[in-house]
Design a binder for these strands. Structure first.
Lengths: 245, 245
DNA sequence: CAGTGGTCTAGACCACGCC
DNA sequence: GCGTGGTCTAGACCACTGA
């Protein structure tokens, strides 16, 4: 490597970081081809094998995909359900899931509770952005999201962006160059709280409904936690399915 | 490579498969060191880099672990909760989880329902082994497992083995040389059924309790589905936490 | 056919654990 | 100091894609 021996990081890690930054900066758009492994190797003064190792890790991380004989491409940003999670019929693991329609409900501000401040490594009562959105399947509400983001990091967030089709993760990538990665998720069964029941259209006689409550913590590629998401799912006839590695 | 060019598999894949078989056969025990990368390379007639690639994939798959400067070792078989799942306090992602005690309840036989037969790629009504076990935290029941396995594959299963500390996955590894890997999991919120409520010690006035219902499909390293597990978790004060890769 | 990713080698050097 | 895993290189060949 010509220059970048500044840090005592392995060369492939430096290459990976550099590519990560250039992808984040939008140098290549989704489904654009990167330069070939040899071109990158020349350009960065590393060998093809070293570049290949860096690219492989980015492929494993889901940021790139490869096609033999063609090239290496920028992968689309995963939607708000991630690459591996879907809502399908309980017990049927091979079922093709139906598409969910996203409905943006609102963008507001609030202050971090103690738990959330700790998880996001913020001070208590730190300002947060709250994004609410509803998921519908065949027109019926099936899930409700509360997405909490550190307000200082995402200053200038515009509700109009969130009405678009990109979802929260897509918007963060496009507007702020931040790519989130799920760190940890918690699942619980709860009786659906009143406010959420109302938003999910569960009212009247059948008000006492159990709901799947998902808590998600996500971080950027450097590991800085940036998202706390709470999702209520109606799993009366559906199951929250996660495919493993 | 000297001989093994039989299949049109890459050499590293053949090496990986060979090591997988030798590990499964018990050639090395848990925490035993494998031969060094160079020794394996000599022995198998491959280069160190090729052996390294095979080992790396086994490390990624969780079967081996490495210690720089020391060696490569056989990883312990993960417990019935997997490497990444725990029960912790909701909202606290960094909490150290308390240990769960496992209580074997029984081994019985039944015939596969349609769903299960399909998921396990068996004929309808195929015979299954059913293992029931209870999980306690600080003495209180918190989860109940029904593990269903194809009876023909695990003929000779002995209840005494399952009383031991190895758990289901440990027993399958030790007694049958089969290592399972979680393929997919489904989460739902349900009202706890009567039978499960009774086993979990939820009785009387507070009988109407929501429970987290987990459905898990696992396969061996060749991808053959071999386990259908249903788990009810009491998530009143706990959350089922999954760490992501 | 040329260009790309995918595999493999031999050899080198580094960083770490341990005696 | 020695043996281990961890990195890096240069060069080779294969398999696939698309003009």
């Amino acid at each position: 490597m010509t220059v970048n021996a500044l840090k005592r990081q392995p060369l492939y890690a430096q290459v990976k970081l550099l590519l990560l930054q250039r992808i984040g900066a939008g140098e290549w758009q989704t489904h654009d081809a990167l330069p070939s492994e040899w071109e990158l190797a020349d350009e960065l003064g590393a060998s093809q094998g070293t570049v290949r190792k860096a690219l492989s890790e980015l492929v494993d991380a889901g940021l790139l995909y490869r096609q033999q004989g063609r090239g290496t491409y920028v992968a689309p940003v995963p939607g708000d359900w991630g690459d591996d999670a879907r809502l399908v019929t309980p017990g049927l693991f091979t079922e093709q899931p139906d598409e969910l329609a996203r409905e943006f409900l609102g963008l507001s501000r609030l202050n971090a509770s103690e738990d959330i401040a700790e998880a996001l490594q913020l001070r208590r009562l730190a300002p947060l952005l709250r994004i609410r959105q509803l998921w519908r399947r065949h027109g019926s509400p099936v899930a409700l999201d509360d997405v909490l983001l550190p307000a200082e990091v995402f200053e200038g967030m515009d509700a109009r962006w969130l009405r678009g089709s990109a979802g929260v993760y897509g918007t963060l990538q496009q507007r702020f160059g931040v790519r989130l990665k799920i760190v940890s998720e918690q699942f619980r069964a709860e009786m659906l709280p009143r406010e959420e029941a109302s938003l999910l259209g569960v009212t009247g006689m059948v008000a006492d409904v159990p709901a799947l409550c998902l808590l998600r913590l996500s971080a950027d590629m450097d590991g800085r936690p940036l998202e706390w998401r709470q999702r209520y799912c109606l799993t009366h006839q559906l199951a929250y399915t996660v495919k493993h590695g």
